[in-house]
Design a protein around this nucleic acid. Structure first.
Length: 974
RNA sequence: GCUCGGGUGGUGGAACUGGUAGACACGCAGGACUUAAAAUCCUGUGAUCCUUAAAGAUCGUGCGGGUUCGAUUCCCGCCCCGAGUACCA
């Protein structure tokens, strides 16, 4: 029979499901290999053709690893809490759990028909109570932990309490809030329970803190910075205001250094690591205190160039700095207040965007340089950010461009401090040279100066070396319904954990998915929802990243009711060997996951410092839109309800028109005039470029019949083809010419009519073709537009492969004869090539090589079992269905292919006796000469020079030089 | 602005460590089979020039230079496109 992909694919998908072919065991004599995909949020739109790209790659890799003798864990699940289902619930009243269930089913159906080798027995859903029970459990562990800097790890809060009770706060170095108290053991023990809890909250790894958030009243929720555009919510465009709120936060900053160091130990794409490094934003420098003149306190600044301290000519505070009001002198009050008011009006974004204008105000106060006592003006300016460092900077206009511009604008002094500095037109941040105007560091080099200044500052208690991180603690909560409830209740305004035995804390039912009338989150609507019928629960739910920050561990032991995963399972699977997903999660999911992983390791329940050993970013699949050109001229003297005739011109005609081709312009005008009613006048000719559904376009050729049906207005359209032929609505005669559409690469989206659904492709060509074609498209990591055009080539390849096993009557026929040298050569070339390609994730080149191999075997008319059976094994990672079928036809036990052995490469079959040396004259290839590979370079040279054709090129001259690279090339220099 | 990717035929792309640029596929053109179409198969296909033809010449991997017997590959300078980030002291 001909290649019946539909029957074959249905049959084997059913077989794999029935026999649980891909169920992985938690113990095995084989080495383990864990291949993970970033699990999807099940959206209502289902999968488009871009989504499975990474899944196909990871599936090929998983199947390959099984053939290579690994025990492979390859699971899939759903990140099923999230906004879209909740938004839909608000609009329709349908419970998000129902919407989610429906969407999950669609996803499952679509994933199944792609033939993935997932172990579905381990499926997880973050919104299921058996799962979020453990998300809540991890939250509780974080609440019960603090970060001990002395050990560089998280420890139990009990240990901290014991220490406080015995030694007070003395001897504790923790990552904690800034306002922690200093107390003795007696003082601690004398504190009330509430006071102790308040103090402990400043240490816990998840804690409540008042923070400024982007509050969107219309949506009734807090938005992340990237969900706000120009002061409006990205979704819906509602106004967003800054609001102070008590929020749960995660003390991720405790792990800043470990998160940074760990990057050097993992095999991730460099750009992604770079993004995380920038996000963490470590800078090494010093903090310096500038005493305020006739004032008790000092202004503390952070600087990375402490060596430039003698170049400081002013100090600048952020307008929001807490000392601004108290340090403003009466004379400057009006100016400073006006400036602050002006800053407040500007949104955060305006402030960042407008980096050109210099603005600021003098407070009237002075600070003193701690090293030489010099009086320094104290200013405020919005280029200093309250949120970074201490919200104050020491300005060194000779070395920093912003300070330079500020000094020029306000006529402040600029003092050069290094002898090589050139500060005539701009600041010069050089570190090369010797210091001048710098007191005791004059004449020193950069390195010497830094050490000397820091030592001096420390000795007088005016500063110290310091490392600063840009990363902030992560806000952990949103005022939404569809998320994990926080397992916390409040007593006297203080948070307490519910007990572990009460987990999971189930999401209560509510009548409407909206904030309460008093502005509380939706959970405030839950009737009688109180801890022990008495205490208020936390009403916000966890953010989207909570459930995804540990899910790879749940796959290891998905049904464990006692633990998030058993120790044995975690010890066996350890970490993810290969993780495939998009780079958009660089500073979200991938950073939070590393954070939770490190915490769980400190807790002793997992064992690896890094969760994802190797990570690959698959590129985005963009859409490729098609366009038609509709004539849309100005028409005068017609009724205002007059509907213009629908006339579309082919791309070439449009282009001729635009180029000003006289005949085309005139013909179109004449033609169009005929369509107009009596008395109407044709004005200026224009064209509308309209998106057309890519599914009715094939190789940019529009399917006219489908086009007429696509939209009712098109039914009576007049269509001008590429050669100028005019097609009228009821004209069904065959045309020589075609209607050619224009094209453009854009995002894949419904509104652009460029969404290609995998269901349609599978219906037409089958999953094996789709899988191979997605790989064939180009390198996995590169973004590329989807274009269905080339898919025929892959489909033809699979048919050709099928045909190797069949005779002209489509009867299955293979021969048991011994293979020839040429056949073995083809086979072993592909054995090696596919192995190399998969190991370096170059799937596209494998597909080409398969085509070459099948072309060669077809030319050799090879139907030998010895060759074809190995071919089936090699190809099975890419096209599993057709290979299972052929494997069974070859007489093997059904379903055993997935665990067969990858054929062993034997280099002997590729040994050549001769090589066709390219012979170049002065680097330009002129001919090929077949020469035995046993010949040494000297003999090759003699052989080549003796050749008559070479002699012709030499034209009697003696070559200056002859380069012979054995087995590669001969180059003759004349 | 900074950081990181990337620029190769009409198109997607290939080229190991510096060694025959354009594999493989699409598209296109021509041919075979067919009453016809579809399907299938065969041939050709970077550009320009030259020749009746066979063959040949020149140019060619974003641009300009360099290293080398030899550069898509290495080095220097620049241009364009994409992503991330943004007053970070």
């Amino acid at each position: 029979m001909d290649y019946q992909f539909k029957d074959i694919e249905n049959k084997w998908q059913q077989f794999w499901a029935d026999h649980q072919t891909y169920k992985a065991d938690n113990q095995s004599a084989k080495p383990k290999y864990y291949v993970l995909d970033m699990f999807p949020y099940p959206s209502g739109a289902g999968l488009h053709v871009g989504h499975p790209l990474g899944y196909i790659a990871s599936d090929i890799f998983s199947r390959y690893k099984r053939l290579k003798g690994f025990n492979v864990l390859h699971p899939m699940g759903y990140d099923s809490f999230g906004l879209p289902a909740e938004q839909y619930a608000i609009q329709t009243g349908q419970h998000p759990a129902i919407t989610t269930e429906e969407n999950v089913n669609t996803y499952r159906r679509q994933l199944d028909q792609l033939g993935f080798s997932f172990d579905w027995s381990r499926e997880v859903r973050t919104s299921s109570p058996d799962y979020y029970k453990w998300t809540q459990w991890i939250f509780m562990q974080l609440f019960n932990s603090w970060y001990n800097k002395a050990d560089e790890k998280a420890e139990s809060i009990e240990k901290l309490i014991t220490h406080f009770a015995a030694n007070g706060s003395n001897g504790i170095t923790a990552v904690c809030d800034e306002d922690t108290l200093t107390f003795t053991a007696e003082e601690w023990n004398a504190m009330s329970q509430e006071a102790q809890q308040t103090e402990l909250l400043k240490y816990r790894l998840t804690y409540l803190r008042e923070s400024t958030v982007n509050w969107c009243p219309a949506l009734g929720t807090v938005l992340a910075n990237d969900e706000v555009k120009d002061g409006f919510s990205e979704r819906g465009g509602y106004p967003v205001v800054q609001k102070k709120m008590m929020q749960w936060s995660m003390r991720i900053t405790a792990y800043a250094e470990r998160l940074l160091q760990g990057l050097d130990t993992i095999d991730w794409p460099e750009p992604l690591k770079e993004m995380q490094r920038n996000w963490i934003g470590k800078s090494v420098g010093a903090s310096v205190k500038f005493p305020i003149e006739s004032h008790e306190s000092a202004i503390e600044v952070f600087t990375t160039r402490v060596d430039t301290i003698f170049g400081v000519t002013f100090v600048v505070l952020a307008p929001e700095h807490e000392l601004v009001t108290s340090l403003t002198t009466p004379e400057q009050k009006a100016e400073v207040e006006a400036y602050i008011a002006q800053t407040k009006k500007k949104s955060e974004l305006d402030r960042m965007a407008d980096t050109k204008t210099v603005s600021g105000a003098f407070t009237g106060s002075y600070v003193l340089n701690p090293l030489n006592g010099e009086r320094i003006q104290l200013w405020i300016a919005d280029y200093v950010l309250a949120g970074y460092g201490t919200g104050a900077v020491m300005a060194v206009p000779s070395g920093d461009q912003r300070d330079y511009l500020f000094a020029k604008h306000f006529n402040l002094p600029i003092v050069p401090i290094i002898d090589t500095q050139n500060i005539e037109t701009e600041a010069d941040p050089t570190k090369e040279g010797k210091y001048i105007n710098s007191d005791f560091i004059n004449g020193l080099t950069y390195k010497e100066a830094v050490a000397a200044v820091v030592a001096k500052l420390e000795s007088i208690g005016a500063g110290k070396a310091k490392i600063n991180f840009r990363m902030r603690d992560a806000i952990f909560g949103r005022q939404r319904y569809w998320g994990e409830p926080v397992p916390v209740y409040f007593k006297n305004g203080l948070p307490y954990l519910i007990s572990e035995s009460e987990l999971p804390l189930l999401l209560p039912e509510i009548d409407k998915y909206l904030p309460t009338e008093t502005g509380e989150p939706p959970l405030g609507r839950a009737e009688g929802w109180k801890y022990q019928n008495e205490h208020e629960y936390e009403l916000s739910t966890m953010p989207g990243w909570a459930g995804s920050s540990w899910y790879w561990y749940r796959y290891m032991d998905a049904h464990n009711g006692q633990e998030f995963a058993s120790k044995e399972a975690v010890e066996y699977w350890k970490d993810v060997d290969l993780y495939i997903g998009g780079s958009e999660h660089a500073t979200g999911h991938l950073l939070y996951s590393r954070f939770w992983n490190k915490f769980l390791k400190d807790l002793g329940v997992v064992f690896e410092e890094e969760p994802f050993k190797k990570l690959i970013n698959q590129g985005m699949i963009q859409g490729r839109s098609n366009f038609t050109y509709r004539l849309a001229p100005l028409i005068l003297n017609v009724d205002e309800n007059y509907a213009k005739p629908e006339v579309y011109v082919s791309k070439g005609v449009y282009e001729l028109y635009k180029e000003g081709d006289f005949d085309t312009i005139e013909q179109i005008a004449l033609f169009y005039k005929d369509l107009l009613p009596e008395g109407a006048e044709l004005g200026e000719m224009e064209f509308s470029k309209l998106h057309v559904d890519v599914n009715i376009v094939n190789n940019d050729v529009l399917d006219l019949a489908a086009f007429r049906q696509w939209r009712s207005e098109n039914k009576n359209a007049i269509i001008i083809l590429e050669d100028g032929t005019v097609v009228y609505p009821n004209d069904s005669t065959e045309q020589e010419s075609k209607y050619i559409c224009d094209s453009e690469v854009e995002k894949m989206s419904k509104s652009k009519f460029n969404v290609v659904n995998p269901d349609n492709i599978i219906e037409r060509y089958g999953a094996d073709t789709l899988r191979m074609y997605e790989m064939f498209l180009g390198p996995l990591e590169q973004s590329k537009p989807w274009n269905t055009n080339g898919i025929e080539g892959v489909f033809k390849f699979l048919r050709k492969f099928w045909r190797l096993f069949h005779n002209d009557q489509w009867e299955f026929t293979v021969s048991n004869e011994a293979p020839t040298k040429a056949e073995l050569k083809s086979l072993h070339k592909i054995i090696r090539k596919v192995e190399e390609d998969i190991e370096r994730f170059s799937f596209n080149t494998s597909v080409s090589s398969f085509m070459i191999a099948v072309n060669e075997l077809t030319d050799l008319k090879c139907n030998k079992r010895a060759i074809l059976q190995d071919m089936v094994v090699i190809l099975s990672s890419y096209a599993p269905h057709i290979c299972e079928e052929l494997w069974a036809l070859l007489g093997n036990e059904a379903g055993t292919l997935s665990y067969a052995a990858y054929p062993k490469f034997n280099p002997d079959y590729l040994v050549e006796d001769e090589f066709a040396y390219p012979v170049s004259i002065n680097g330009k290839t002129k001919m090929n000469l077949s020469i035995a590979l046993t010949l040494e370079p000297k003999d090759v040279e003699a052989f080549v020079l003796a050749n008559a054709d070479v002699q012709k090129y030499l034209d009697g001259k003696t070559p200056k030089k002859v380069i012979v690279v054995k087995g590669r090339i001969v180059n003759i220099v004349i």
